[in-house]
């Protein structure tokens, strides 16, 4: 299946270039390590062969769009916007919807090649005592080769990322062409901090503290998130200064709470921040709380409907009032 999709992608991209519909295509190429792939920017049809499609095309490619459309620093003269083709799984496409709604993308200038996603793998799910020297994917099975050239066969399902296991939107809600990928995976309602939520308040706090104390404020999470396109992040501002420039855990917490809260109604649960974090912090335990609450309290899912207002700019008469303390 994967190979067929890959071939189909290449065909489509080829057509786009030959018909001069795009100036740039964003997809995936082979990564430097086994079981990875990297984002790849194609500007001419000769390079199309670099494109790949496999179970590790995890990156949320939407992150590049605001940067291309809104170069920093702001240009005085009006710039000619490039026409971009982009490969979009469910989550990438939802990010694109969010970004269109937030005026960060010129819809007319993007061609969305949607793929019904079967879920992406997470390398971290492989036992970490194995040193992977090679890997091959075939028929829903992944064979890895360890340092002793021993082949280990794994089921694709076992490697799925947490966010993919729970994903409810494998089909891109917006696309110009859609590539089907056979049967749908049933979404499993687990993870995402739900176990965490069951813990006592003290345990939660301790875990939060423990996780956050790993954070080195490298901002890789912010860099990876398509929503973090602010021209000047609150974390960097000086007038007023929201966060002290120290590595005091309270300041780190402030950053994390602030950044994550800023994703309310916008986070599409793509897992980009989790994958980006060099310290292995499972940010999803926190980000997913807001995703869940948006749905439970306001029946709102980010990036699903283009026409829907923004979660934090709208309200309904039936909005729950449970946060109110009655005397």
């Amino acid at each position: 299946m994967m190979k067929e999709i890959e071939t189909r992608i290449k065909e489509v991209v080829k057509d786009l270039f030959t018909q001069n519909k795009i100036d740039l295509f964003i997809g995936y190429s082979k990564g430097s390590l086994p079981l990875t792939s990297s984002p790849c920017f194609i500007t001419k049809s000769e390079d199309i062969e670099k494109l790949v499609w496999n179970s590790f095309c995890s990156n949320n490619l939407a992150v590049y769009l605001p940067r291309i459309f809104n170069p920093q620093p702001r240009k005085k003269e009006k710039i000619e916007l490039p026409r971009i083709g982009i490969l979009a799984k469910g989550c990438d496409a939802r990010s694109i919807v969010v970004l269109i709604k937030e005026h960060q993308i010129a819809r007319d200038n993007v061609f969305i090649l949607g793929i019904v996603c079967q879920g992406m793998g997470d390398r971290k799910k492989i036992r970490n005592d194995i040193e992977i020297t090679g890997a091959e994917e075939k028929n829903g099975r992944i064979t890895i080769v360890d340092e002793n050239k021993k082949e280990i066969e794994l089921k694709r399902e076992e490697l799925l990322s947490d966010c993919c296991i729970e994903c409810q939107h494998a089909t891109p809600p917006i696309h110009d062409i859609l590539i089907e990928s056979g049967n749908q995976r049933p979404a499993a309602p687990k993870g995402g901090g739900r176990d965490f939520e069951k813990k006592s308040i003290e345990d939660r706090w301790n875990l939060f503290q423990e996780e956050i104390s790993k954070c080195i404020r490298c901002y890789a999470c912010r860099q990876a998130c398509p929503n973090c396109y602010c021209r000047e992040c609150f974390a960097d501002q000086t007038k007023p200064r929201w966060i002290g420039v120290t590595d005091h855990i309270s300041d780190v917490m402030f950053y994390q709470i602030g950044r994550i809260f800023h994703q309310a109604g916008r986070c599409v649960d793509c897992g980009a921040c989790v994958r980006a974090c060099p310290m292995g912090i499972d940010l999803r335990v926190f980000t997913h709380k807001l995703v869940r609450d948006a749905k439970e309290l306001f029946d709102y899912e980010a990036g699903v409907f283009l026409e829907e207002g923004l979660l934090l700019a709208t309200f309904k008469p039936e909005d729950k009032q449970e946060f109110i303390s009655e005397p």
Binding site: D203, N206, I257, L290, D293, L312, Q321, F323
Partner: peptide
């Protein structure tokens, strides 16, 4: 409009402990 932010913030802070 603020109510939505408040509801989410409150739950979020409680979630964190």
């Amino acid at each position: 409009v603020a109510g939505r932010k408040f509801a989410l913030l409150k739950n979020f802070l409680v979630h964190l402990g």
